[in-house]
Each structure stands twice: as structure tokens, then as C-alpha cells.
Write a protein that binds this DNA or RNA. Structure first.
Lengths: 351, 351
DNA sequence: ATTAGCACTCAAAGAAAAAGAGTGCTAACA
DNA sequence: TGTTAGCACTCTTTTTCTTTGAGTGCTAAT
């Protein structure tokens, strides 16, 4: 488009068409694509020789490459990039598809995180890829409740509930049984000091300060506070979840060792790669540094709540992924989720 | 041993030694073992020719086989069986090893299930295999507490605690907010009707009966009871856990597709295979029916509490597993756990 | 600007040959 | 009688060489 104006137009319409056709074919077959194959396509009306000339140009420009002299062409990373940005025709979703995707979403999910995860599961089945979810709700949610429930000799269950509806519990074994007074004090102390505290701000330091300020109760209750701290940590660690890894394992073009290594430190890897400053849709290739799995790409799309990023849903698949199908799916799902978690608020407000 | 008495002794000491040596070598290398290799072993003082003769006999007896005429021998299933039952010299654990294994156990684990799982994790790292845990605590544990905690508009957290110390929670979204009276009724009703009920007996039928008997509260509280039912289901579904699958994925002699298929219905598969009537240690080979992963074996050892089976810990690995190392590890760990969960009881009693 | 024609390249597939590991058998030996 | 050296034989694995075929780049004609 804009290329035709300012810059000398290196890519005329036909070359763009050919590049798109090559990538389309490569995505389907996984084999290098030759000039004959392209020439046989219905809407290409030039001879193989012409296509060869164009492909040579496309190679010089860095969009295609040859595995070896006598093979067809395969896309380079920049080829894919151009394809995704400008060339592919992302199919508009039909009404049936939209309905099908809607049905995948668990409308009864109690929390936004659970809703997103239902989308993740569905998406991994639909695309035969792995999917990744980044729940950044820890950044949003504050502690709404901390409860202690006695459950046996010197055993207590700690329960933490956050504003986003997430719940975690933990069993603490104490040295002594708590008196009613102690339990009441603890509940009150928690309500006064932790209610409203953002989950990811609950550091060990804060806990230590709280412990220090507890006076006579310090000794008995310190272990409980430690438990509270661990609970909060649990929320934070839970940020990134990958599902459908098995879909990747089944593929021959992806090294299973690398998948294992990726899963082992997915948190770090994914965290490094998800750049909040980017647009709402981001496509990362394995060359882009840090991404352990060779020959793969990751497409992520952001979910917003009140304008702020409330989560990320993504697909991890092979480089030769059916972008024209997956990207609309992903965008539709994140769009719907964004709508739904806003609706919810209205729902609550209009009451 | 006993073979030498009643039955004509088909396997003299030397043949047993040779069989053991072949299997030892095969476990290490994974390659067919030839007569030369065995002859070069320090405590074998006969020539390759003699060994060849013996190996031919061992093959006729079904303990060894040849992949093809000009290859060495590999063990058959019966070969492995004999090896495990009689031939291998299971190394006694040294004090350091015992200490190391002790350190792997999470002594602070709040529940027996958590303790067993800590062993499972450690074991999978030590053996570079997958491990499997069957928590049959659902059969043992009864419901000790069901709590409802309001946590926002029409949102309630259900909390279920069992006698074995396991806890699960679930968020329920109701159509209406509950009155204090309703909440109190529910708590009382739960305490009266569910306390002491074994987790795996809480069927939908029982819940329906309870709902029917609730009278005026029926409509409002039915969803909560449904939630309770799902919580109990959660305990049951949680029976079998596999960890360290990645260790198997890394192996070239095990088909990763089969691993995926196994993981998909591990519950069924493992349940079918663990035969409670067996002795405390059980070694299952992939030929033994039902076990989807070819060329693998599973060693399981039972954990007891007051004589009854309270859990199962097992290792899933390749056929050519270092049984002489893994079996003592497994037996020691399950032994220690059995001790520990009994100790705990004394601990509680002497109070 | 496009295309037919053709020589050229290079991976992949196939065929043939060589190497090597291990066996079974026979005959000699203690 | 049990053990062993020797040797021919088998069958996989590795290597080397050849063939095939897809696909290219270039040239000259349209």
C-alpha cells in the first residue's frame, strides 16, 4: 500500500501475490515450493520462468531462501513477517465459527482467570498447538479476605481470597493450639492490615513488619503470617500457564527436548517475551531471542479490562502455522473475553 | 536357590551368572550383548565359546533372545523377571544414601498425600524416570468440615476439609444473596448430615436426598450442595498423579506419542494395573496388558497405615531400568513413609 | 516484459561393495 | 565330559558410487 507512494516500489502486486502463494503453500506442505507449483495456481497467469525471476528478486530482498540450489523456496523470518503484516488474507470469521468459539468460553467461570483458561484449553484443541496464558491478575487484585479455620489438633487452614475471586488455601501446623482470643485477634489484625493490599506487594518485609508490630501475639502467630506470605507468593507464581503441550510434542518439526526445556522455565521465558508496550497483537518468532524452541512462533493477544491489560492469551506453534486462521480465532476470543469481563462489571453495577 | 532342590536344575550357577551379566550390561548400554563382552568381565573365567553355549541354552529357555542371527543377546520379559526376582544384587543402601533419601521427604508436609508427593518428585529426579502416585486417601478420609464464606455479591466460597487434612475450595455464584439465617442453616445442615461421611461415598444420589429434605431452603441452597458434590468429586479424581514425564520424553527408546496417550488416560490405565491383592512390591512390564507405553516397566510399592494400604508410589521407566538401584530406593522411601504416617498418629495420641 | 529451452546443481534414493560383530559348529584338548 | 580354539557363515551397518529428478539460472526468441 504505502510502499507504492514514497519508496520506490520494490514489490509490485505480482511479486506480493507470488510471495503470499509461496508462504501459503509452504504452510500447508512444509516442503520447499517451486515455480511450477505456483504457476499451476488458478489466479496466477504467468509462466514458471517469470515466477522464477520474481522469486530470485524476493530472495535477494530477503523474503525467501533456498535450502540448497536445486530446491524450491521457503520463507525467511522477514518473509513471514511481511506475510502476517500485509499479505495473508485473514479470513473473516463466519457466524458459525463465531458461535463455535463463543461456545468454547466457559460463561459460568467464577473468575476472569478461569474464563481465560477455558479459552486457552479450547484454543489448543482447535489449533493443535500449545497455548499460553499470562494471568496478570495478581497485579490487579487485592486481598479481600484472610481466614483461619481450625481443623484438627494444632492444624489450621489459612484461606486467602482476592478481589478477582481467586482463592488459595494452605495448611499450617502450629506448635500450640490457638485460643479463641488469639484467633479473633489474628482475624482482626489481618482485616485491618492486609485487606486492600495488592497481592504482589505483600513482600516478606511487610510481613516482618506486621509480625514485629504484633506484640504479645508475635510468637504464636508468626508461623501463620508466614503462611499468609506463602499464599500470596502462590498467587504470583501462578502467572503463566501452558496447556496443550502434547500438541507440540506430536510434531516432527519441533524438537521435543527443546519443548521440555521451555516448559521447565516457561515463566521466565514467557515473561521476558511478552512486552506490554507492544500493540494488542504480537507475533514472536523463535529467532527473536530467548525463545528456546527453534522453528516455532508465538502469537499473543492482550485482554483488557477498563483499558488496562488484564491478561494475555497466546498460541505457541510451529513457524509454519496457519496464521490466517489462528490470528482471527485468537483476536475474536480475546475480544469476547474483554467484552465479557467488562460486562460483568456493568452487571454488578446495575444491580 | 530352591531350584536346585526339587526341579532338575536347568540353570547352574554359571548360567545364572551369565544371564545376570548379560542383563546388567544391556541395562547399561542398551545394545545387544555378545559373548566376548561377557568373557572380558573380571569374575567370569571361561572362554567366549563356553559362554556362547550357555547363552544358546538361556535362549532356548526363553530368558534371552537375538534381534537377528549375527547380533548379541537381549533379555526377554521372563529374563527380566528372573533377574529381578533372583539374580540382581540389589545393593544395600549406604548410610549416606539413606540420609539423602530422608532429606528428600518433606517432613513438614501437612498431609500424608503431600508427603508421598514430595517423595514422588524426588524419586523422579533421582531415577530420571516418571513417577506415579496413587492417593487412595479418598477411601480413608471422611468429611470433617464444610464451610461457606461469602466473598462478594452473590459469590460464595465453599470449603471442604477432610480427616486426612486435604482441603479443596470452589467458588459458587448464586442467584441471590444469602441471609444470615440461610447461611447458618446451611452450616448446621452440613455439619449434621455430611460430617463423617467418607469422601468417596458422597454420590449425587445422596446429595439429591439431602436437597429434597431441606424443605423451604431447597431452592436457594441447592446450587451450594451441588458445589459440595463437585468438591467431593475433585477429591476422588485426584487419585492418580504422574510427575517427571519429561524424563521419559527425553529417552529415545520410548515412543513419545505413547507417553502422551498414557498421560491422557493415566487414571484408567494405572487403576487397572495396580492390583491391591499383590504383594507390597510389584513390577509390571508393558507386555502385561493395558500398559500403553511399549518397552517400559512400572515398579510400584505400597504405603500402609495401620496395616491397610494408604497409597502407592511407583516409578515408570524404560524396560532397561536400573532395577538394582531403583527398587531399593523405592522400598526405602515407601518404608519410611509408612513409618512416618504411623508415627504421626502416635504423635497425636500421646498428646 | 515474458517465455521456451536447456545446461547445470544438488539432495535424495537406490545399488553394490566392504566391513564388522557375533554366532554355531566341529574338532581338539584336559 | 566339559571346555576351548578355529573357522565358515549370517546378517546388519557403513561406505561408496550411481542414478534419478526436481528445480534453478541463463540465454535467446517472441
Amino acid at each position: 500500500m504505502y510502499l507504492q507512494k514514497g519508496v520506490i516500489c520494490l514489490l509490485d502486486e505480482r511479486k506480493r501475490k507470488i510471495l503470499a502463494a509461496v508462504i501459503d503453500a509452504y504452510i500447508v506442505t512444509g516442503e520447499p515450493v517451486g515455480s511450477k507449483t505456483i504457476a499451476s495456481l488458478p489466479d496466477i497467469r504467468v509462466s514458471p520462468a517469470t515466477i522464477r525471476n520474481d522469486m530470485a528478486v524476493l530472495e535477494q530482498l530477503g523474503y525467501l531462501e533456498q535450502p540448497h540450489t536445486s530446491a524450491g523456496r521457503i520463507p525467511t523470518y522477514s518473509g513471514y513477517r511481511l506475510y502476517i503484516d500485509e499479505l495473508m488474507n485473514a479470513k473473516e470469521l463466519s457466524d458459525e465459527e463465531k458461535k463455535m468459539l463463543d461456545d468454547c468460553l466457559d460463561v459460568d467461570a467464577p473468575t476472569a482467570d478461569a474464563l481465560i483458561e477455558s479459552a486457552s484449553k479450547a484454543l489448543s484443541e482447535l489449533t493443535h498447538c500449545a497455548t499460553v496464558v499470562k494471568n496478570i491478575s495478581p497485579k490487579f487484585s487485592v486481598i479481600t479476605k484472610v481466614e483461619v479455620i481450625p481443623t484438627g489438633k494444632r492444624m489450621y487452614v489459612l484461606l486467602m481470597i482476592t478481589s478477582s475471586g481467586n482463592i488459595r488455601n494452605k495448611v499450617c501446623r502450629l506448635e500450640f493450639d490457638l485460643t479463641n482470643e488469639q484467633m479473633e485477634f489474628f482475624s482482626r489484625y489481618m482485616a485491618e492490615n492486609l485487606q486492600g493490599v495488592p497481592v504482589d506487594e505483600l513482600s516478606e518485609e511487610i510481613v516482618e513488619q506486621l509480625v514485629a508490630a504484633m506484640g504479645t501475639y508475635m510468637v504464636t502467630l508468626a508461623p501463620l503470617l508466614k503462611g499468609v506470605c506463602e499464599l500470596a507468593e502462590g498467587f504470583r507464581d501462578n502467572e503463566i500457564k501452558v496447556s496443550g503441550e502434547k500438541n507440540l510434542l506430536a510434531r516432527r518439526d519441533i524438537n521435543s527436548g527443546q519443548i521440555v526445556r521451555f516448559l521447565e522455565n516457561k515463566n521466565e521465558v514467557v515473561k521476558n517475551m511478552l512486552d506490554d508496550s507492544f500493540g494488542d497483537l504480537q507475533v514472536v518468532f523463535s529467532e527473536d531471542g530467548g525463545f528456546v524452541i527453534e522453528n516455532s512462533s508465538m502469537i499473543v493477544s492482550k485482554i483488557r479490562k477498563d483499558g488496562e491489560i488484564a491478561g494475555t492469551l497466546g498460541v505457541i506453534g510451529p513457524m509454519r502455522l496457519d496464521y490466517a486462521k489462528v490470528i482471527p480465532y485468537l483476536e475474536y476470543l480475546t475480544g469476547r473475553i474483554t467484552e465479557m469481563i467488562s460486562e460483568e462489571d456493568q452487571d454488578d453495577e446495575d444491580k
